[in-house]
Amino acid sequence: MSATTHAKGSNPLSIRARKGGIPLVCLTAYTTPVARLVDPHCDLVLVGDSVGMVLHGLPSTVGVTLDMMILHGQAVRRGIENALLVVDMPFGSYEESPAQAFRNASRIMAETGCAAVKLEGGVSMAETISFLVARGIPVMAHVGLTPQGVNAFGGYTVQGRGEDAGGVIADARAVAYAGAFSVVLEKVPETLARAITAEIDIPTIGIGASPACDGQILVVDDMLGLFTDFRPKFVKRYAELGHATTEAVVAYAEDVRQRRFPGPEHVFAEKLPGKKS
């Protein structure tokens, strides 16, 4: 099933042109209602594979499937009018070969109507990025902490400290040279993110990186405080909707048990002849 093409507004070229300019505002979204809420205020909306943990209760992003990403990509696309829509390529859908990556990326774009895909990896994925870009698929790269590689990293640890900085720098250079239009820098030291941003010629999008990055991205559920027991250092909570939801559910449950809800205003009277119900 094909979707409509990306709507007017941001596109990969306009995002790339924002290098060094007004910071790019980016958020994740996984559903149509949330997409409609964030779209007017964002330059880029990402359907992240974090959907597996946020909405499906998976322990990591490794178990996310291509079909899951397409389903949520379609939902978000219905709520996007102006922001650039990017969909994550899930673990196992692109690492085998550039040809595999093209087959799956082209399917994602055709079935969701997104304008670009995102994949994780630096030097190791440079050939694949170049292959995709040459065939008309815009790519957003992702280096530093790459959540799909959490098992190899031994956890969600900061990447690029000390002697490891060189590897992250090499990754960022590689994806920029390969043709990615932007790159996410996740959970890297602030000074390293600042240096990479100054060096490469594509926008850097920080998450746990640096205010010097060309843009910032957060998981929308984290930013809204929907998880009461999850507080990463790099997340600023702009609301506490988890607590507000709990309070609302408690009030509802009490009203139901005390027969306060539904009240007279929530029920329908017997219809009388000649009167509308």
Results as ranks from 00 to 15, higher is better:
44 L>Q: 06
122 G>Y: 02
139 V>R: 02
148 Q>S: 15
43 D>V: 06
81 E>P: 04
64 V>K: 01
90 P>C: 13
151 N>S: 15
135 R>V: 09
96 E>H: 09
42 C>L: 08
44 L>R: 09
76 V>N: 00
89 M>S: 05
62 V>T: 11
51 V>I: 14
125 M>E: 03
150 V>M: 11
70 I>W: 02
108 I>S: 04
153 F>T: 15
125 M>F: 01
114 C>R: 08
37 L>K: 05
101 A>I: 06
116 A>M: 08
86 V>L: 04
144 G>Y: 01
117 V>S: 03
62 V>K: 12
62 V>Y: 08
42 C>N: 06
91 F>S: 05
91 F>T: 04
140 M>R: 06
163 E>D: 14
68 M>T: 15
159 Q>W: 00
41 H>Q: 14
100 Q>D: 03
58 L>C: 07
113 G>A: 07
135 R>M: 15
145 L>P: 05
121 G>M: 10
61 T>R: 08
149 G>M: 14
132 L>G: 01
47 V>W: 05
97 S>G: 08
162 G>F: 14
94 Y>C: 07
72 H>E: 03
107 R>N: 11
83 A>R: 11
83 A>P: 12
112 T>W: 11
82 N>T: 15
56 H>Y: 14
52 G>C: 04
161 R>M: 09
109 M>K: 12
114 C>Y: 14
105 A>P: 00
68 M>K: 05
63 G>N: 13
80 I>K: 11
125 M>L: 10
89 M>W: 07
115 A>E: 02
155 G>I: 13
50 S>N: 04
109 M>E: 10
156 Y>G: 01
64 V>Q: 03
113 G>C: 05
130 S>Y: 07
82 N>A: 15
88 D>M: 03
125 M>Y: 07
98 P>S: 11
63 G>P: 07
90 P>Q: 12
161 R>C: 05
129 I>N: 01
135 R>P: 09
103 R>N: 12
149 G>N: 14
87 V>F: 04
135 R>D: 12
74 Q>F: 00
138 P>D: 06
118 K>V: 14
36 R>K: 15
145 L>V: 12
81 E>R: 15
81 E>H: 15
60 S>T: 15
62 V>L: 11
108 I>Y: 03
143 V>C: 03
150 V>S: 14
51 V>K: 05
55 L>S: 10
129 I>M: 06
109 M>C: 10
56 H>A: 14
48 G>T: 13
86 V>W: 03
135 R>W: 14
141 A>V: 04
110 A>C: 08
54 V>D: 10
43 D>S: 09
115 A>S: 10
127 E>I: 00
148 Q>C: 10
107 R>V: 02
62 V>F: 13
69 M>P: 03
104 N>S: 08
103 R>G: 15
54 V>C: 07
81 E>C: 13
73 G>V: 06
140 M>T: 02
